[in-house]
Write a protein that binds this DNA or RNA. Structure first.
Lengths: 231, 231
DNA sequence: GTAATAGTGTCTATCAGACACTATTCA
DNA sequence: TGAATAGTGTCTGATAGACACTATTAC
């Protein structure tokens, strides 16, 4: 604000995504292998420069990155935190606006993912991935998973990790796996009924060699509801 | 990521602060009058360009702005949300990393504030200030106050709006004014005792023509504790 | 004493979680 | 029929809030 029209040198500006899915192995995060310096050949979060000629806003930039890396169009996408400092990128002062995206297990198929070595789902343990990450991306991953874990306690967020039709037992299992503890079936169902965000799909049942389970779907426009208290 | 070394044009990058204090009138936000175009002469949130030669990181930039505008050194400062789009600033694609800062009432004295017409505390009603704001700053204010209100429900955040010594009745009053509802004295004190974040300052009492009240201070390092359930 | 607020104790309606029970399918 | 899981009902310990009571000062 001191010298009105002096053009300050601008920092680098990127968006980076923590794309999360849940598989049999647990929570997994999508990583890409960098093809250019710095950190060429190493793993990093999918991300990219903000294209001021193409992206209308930050969320559009994040959506574009998501589309480019996964082919998925409109899953759950939430702004996380913005990291910016002189040292986090060797190319200079840089800002990374980070987003968390949750992907349903059945949407995880990457375009031609089988033959690519530059994109990989990587398991998460203790809010950390097993491979070293470029830049401060390990910090971003930790922040994302902390946020996820906290928010799961008081929201319906885990539905985004399931396909559009699911049973209540499946939904409960997602909560339990993210929180790392067992939840009472009765208490869980009371809470879910209370917030009134799913409805049964009449006639559709999950069948096995036991009593079939009702399949539910999210009510229109109620995909992310906050509880007034903790689970 | 398509063309490696092509230097993408960079967006403008700023930090903007929602500096909040609580007075007899209620919640107030610090505004500054812009002295340059665009929006010259109009009110805006205190903020400024990120100086990539002086600011080591985003928080340092926010602290610098806070210091420049209020003279206050280290109050509560929390990153809020990042706004970025092609249209929010007429000068071009711009990013604003926004922060919320809470200031104790006794630290509100601005340097020579009495004679300045370019800085003002402004009352908030319905998460909105009475004057029109430049850019998308009204949206930032709304976001900040929504966050504040939510977080007050399950955290000890309101202490930052009080001086370092305070009575429990005063603390309760802060909660009540932000939440806009009465809280039971007994329940409130039980909760505060439970999270164990304040301690009595022995011998110091708030005196009036009635029973004196014990003065408390925040225990070292416990200034922001989250409750495991809502108030 | 009175006024006024600080601070504590008790009671109750509510509810989350524990647990057990019933229901419904396949084999 | 038995195995297995779906789904519901009941009971209880914990507790938030309502409310009343005691405590301590100035005047």
């Amino acid at each position: 604000m001191t010298n009105p029209q002096m053009p300050y040198p601008r920092p680098i500006a990127t968006v980076d995504l923590v794309i999360v899915a849940l598989t049999e192995a647990g929570l997994e995060v999508l990583l890409t292998r960098r093809d250019i310096e710095p950190y060429a050949g190493e793993w990093a979060l999918p991300g990219g420069w903000i294209h001021i000629d193409k992206d209308i806003d930050l969320e559009a930039a994040a959506c574009r990155v998501l589309r480019e890396k996964t082919g998925v169009e409109t899953p759950y996408l939430e702004q996380l935190e913005t990291f910016g400092s002189a040292g986090r990128d060797p190319r200079g002062w840089s800002i990374s606006v980070s987003y968390v995206s949750l992907i349903a297990t059945n949407q995880m198929r990457l375009p031609a993912a089988e033959h690519r070595t530059d994109v990989a789902w990587t398991a998460v343990t203790d809010d950390t991935v097993a491979v070293p990450l470029s830049f401060d991306h390990a910090k971003i991953v930790k922040s994302a998973l902390t946020r996820l874990r906290n928010k799961v306690e008081y929201s319906t967020l885990p539905v985004h990790l399931l396909p559009s039709g699911f049973t209540l037992t499946e939904l409960q299992a997602v909560y339990e796996r993210i929180l790392g503890r067992r939840i009472d079936k009765s208490a869980f169902r009371k809470r879910i009924a209370e917030v009134d965000f799913v409805e049964p799909v009449f006639g559709e049942m999950r069948r096995a060699s036991n009593r079939p389970a009702q399949i539910y779907r999210v009510k229109a426009g109620r995909s992310t509801i906050l509880f007034d208290r903790t689970l």
